[in-house]
Amino acid sequence: MEHVNPRVAYGETLVELGRENKNIVVLDADLGGSTMGKLFELAYPERHFEAGIAEANMTSMAAGLATTGKIPFVNSFAVFSAGRAFDQIRQTICIGGLNVKIVGSSAGLSDFGDGATHQSVEDIAIMRAIPNMTVICPADANETTAATKAIVEYNGPVYLRINRHDTENITPSPTTKPFTIGEPTLMREGSEIAVFATGITVALALKAAAQLEGQVSVRVINVSTIKPLDSNKITKLSEGCKAIVCAEEHSIIGGLGSAIAETMRANPKPMAFVGIEDTFGVSAHNYEELLEHFGITAEKIAEAILKVGISLAR
């Protein structure tokens, strides 16, 4: 079944996978109604653990469950699952290489009303910095479904970043295209500027590329696996383009842009970043106005493309 909401896609996929795979267990810290862990709880109550509002204990418990052969999915808002339980993730799960899936739900600015305390602008940076960790940020509901399936097949720690809101499905149906961890996807051909995007900014980058048609030839790449990121693949995907734009719903410090820059350090190209400029989020009445406030829009990506293009023409 296809969804447009990534967290519903995630929750339903876990239920589907849990039917066959009895090792899947799910943990929530009183946010199951938001993370959609509640769907798994309804289907398999004995394999769902309500950890109470205690993320640190929940995350270490997941580590213990993994040592007994279970595949725990640890759900919370991204600020908490990546931030509050950082040490638990680092010490036991990542040093131990344990098969725990950390799910950062309502990620980025997508919890628009709750403000800085609940909006994750640095979760990719902190998860990406931990050795052994895989970091995945799907572009839409389809890719969330496909990624959820893929990470169950992969034995090791994973951070899965999930948006709260309905998204337009721009990636193929998960039944037609399985997700391959570590594989960036070319979404649109173009010859002058390469845009690397992740999460909701992939759709925005495609819009920007369409807006600029006839003016600049823009290539768009969906980097849904932010770590591991293969330097050769990124170099190849930017081949022929004279500059790079990176777009993400995350701080420009330590996120996708930084990751791309790191992989291209041996063959650098001019770069521009579209993201949140080293600041916390703020409350808003709706998601769109908040994205606009922080410049996470197709227009801003188009501007960045033109700017980096013009600076080169000079």
């Binding site: 004995e46 640190a56 204990n57 418990m61 040592t67 007994t68 040490d87 638990q88 680092r90 036991t92």
Partner: peptide, 23 residues
Amino acid sequence: ACTGSLGQGLSIGLGMALGLRLD
């Protein structure tokens, strides 16, 4: 399990106990 960041062993042990009970 990898332990040593203090305060975490009991939670890890609890997770083990729950996993063993499920099996």
